[in-house]
């Protein structure tokens, strides 16, 4: 339904999006996930036609749309600020895309769209009398009312819809829970494009591991069956192939077992989370996090033994 081929965008000399390629099938939901400034919003705006791509091609429904202005692309969009027009009532906001299409039966269609977001009762209200959450729902109803080919979203989303969707977020939990595919972006490129489970279980880069699973990333080198990070020796788990030339070791907090193993590390802090304890440990100046059972309560300054149960080398 939507396909991007080697899309580039720069503002002046700063390249914001570098060679972006992706594809979203009809009815699927893609999340663009990444830290602020990674180019995800710019990518969405290029799909919408609000920014022009410097190079590369954008296809919607099989048709190249690079030269098409936003109004000719047949999309729906929910903006971060919601962009609900303050001089129009809720119903008038939602009716607008239909009016431009010259559709009849406005009232019925508006009513139906408002019922999707459970706002029928507020149809005649003006936007300044609504809460933030209600405004968001007005924006969603407005984006959906004219049955767009693709729905683009920057605002926070709480539900899945039947339409093809591209959705921008920096919240990894939301992306993993809702999307069919997640594109993790960093500095203008996609680091990995995969279904949520694969992304979590088999991250392709340390960045994806750190951003999606909150993994620890330690710099260093493989030394025999161990990993040496700034003089600290860590025993690699048996199933990890000690790849020569690896530069970083990625360990999820839940794969770091406190109280077992040979490596001794100093506790920096110990945070009680309720269901567990997050133990922060010092590895020669780099802080790593381990998730321990709630009963484990090491004191700061204490030396504890640590074992790695699972890890990845890059």
């Amino acid at each position: 339904m939507v396909r991007l081929e080697q899309v580039h965008k720069a503002y002046g000399k700063t390249a914001v999006v570098k060679g972006l390629s992706l594809e979203v099938a009809a009815g699927q939901m893609l999340a663009l996930l990444g830290p602020s400034g990674c180019g995800k919003t710019t990518s969405l705006r290029m799909i919408a036609g609000l920014e022009r791509a410097d190079a590369g091609k954008i296809f919607i429904d099989g048709r190249e749309v690079n030269a098409l202005p936003p109004e000719a692309r047949g999309l729906g969009m929910v903006f971060q600020s919601y962009a609900v027009w303050p001089h129009k009532s809720v119903a008038a906001n939602v009716a607008y895309p239909l009016q431009l299409k010259g559709e009849r039966d406005l009232a019925a269609k508006v009513k139906q769209a408002l019922s999707w977001v459970r706002l029928e009762a507020l149809a005649d209200r003006m936007p300044h009398a609504l809460s933030g959450g209600q405004l968001q729902r007005v924006a969603l109803a407005r984006a959906l009312v004219a049955s767009p080919k693709v729905l683009l979203e920057i605002a926070a989303l709480r539900a899945r819809l039947g339409t093809t969707m591209i959705y921008v977020t920096h919240d990894q939990g939301e992306a993993l829970a809702l999307a069919d595919q997640v594109a993790v972006m960093n500095r203008g490129v996609i680091e990995q494009l995969a279904p949520p489970r694969e992304l979590y279980e088999r991250p392709k880069t340390p960045f994806v591991a750190a951003f999606v699973g909150g993994a620890n990333v330690l710099p260093g080198a493989v030394d025999g069956a161990d990993f040496l990070s700034a003089g600290v020796r860590l025993r690699l788990p048996a199933e990890v192939v000690p790849l020569q030339g690896a530069q970083s070791l990625v360990i999820r907090p839940e794969a770091l077992v406190v109280g077992e193993g040979e490596t001794q590390l100093t506790v920096v802090a110990s945070l009680f989370l309720g269901h567990a304890t997050e133990v922060r440990l010092d590895v020669a100046g780099t802080m790593i996090r381990a998730l321990a059972p709630a009963a484990v309560r090491p004191q700061p300054g204490e030396r504890v033994s640590v074992r790695i149960s699972r890890a990845q080398l890059f």
Binding site: P69, A83, A139
Partner: peptide, 23 residues
């Protein structure tokens, strides 16, 4: 006036002039 007000009108199907006059 936030830029997104006009942009929202564009995505809804209004040309640049209409977006200006309507939004």
């Amino acid at each position: 006036v936030d830029h997104s007000l006009a942009e929202a009108a564009r995505v809804c199907g209004a040309g640049p002039l209409r977006a200006f006059f309507h939004a």
